[in-house]
């Protein structure tokens, strides 16, 4: 009888999990940003940079933070407002022949998501 009583009290609130916000330190879902590709491009006359193309899996972000070997090297504000959330960031300080490990995270308010999977790229 008490079990039946408690069963009656079970509600949808019991199914609510407060760990689905990617900016939460206790976030337990999939990564919300990924690096699709990195390639070397000429940004101006004989000036080259690594162009990092990434995709955000959530619309809730205000900017992107780029890490190189675990260190923040650049932060940009959101430029894409389309449903497909593509962003591009340029690493202007890359040196030819050096392999870098790039990761990225999203930022919103004062928070940021966890870093994406690392993308290793050797600058040609």
């Amino acid at each position: 009888m008490p079990a039946l009583f408690l069963l009656c009290c079970k509600s949808k609130l019991d199914e609510v999990q407060l760990n689905d916000n990617p900016y939460d330190l206790e976030y337990a879902g999939p990564k919300v940003v990924r690096i699709d590709s990195v390639r070397k491009v000429e940004v101006s006359f004989h000036v080259y940079a690594n162009k990092i193309n990434l995709t955000s899996l959530t619309e809730m972000y205000q900017g992107v933070i780029l890490y190189r070997n675990g260190v923040v090297i650049k932060t940009i504000n959101r430029t894409s407002h389309a449903s497909v959330l593509k962003e591009s960031i340029y690493d202007n300080t890359a040196v030819s022949g050096v392999t870098y490990s790039y990761t990225a995270s999203l930022k919103y308010d004062n928070g940021k998501t966890g870093q994406s999977d690392a993308f290793n790229f050797t600058t040609p």
Binding site: L18, N21, Y23, N110, G111, K112
Partner: peptide, 16 residues
């Protein structure tokens, strides 16, 4: 449910 929505709609850890 409102608290849940507020939680999902912020990036501030203290607010969460």
């Amino acid at each position: 449910l409102d608290a849940k929505d507020f939680y999902s709609g912020t990036g501030n850890q203290s607010k969460m």
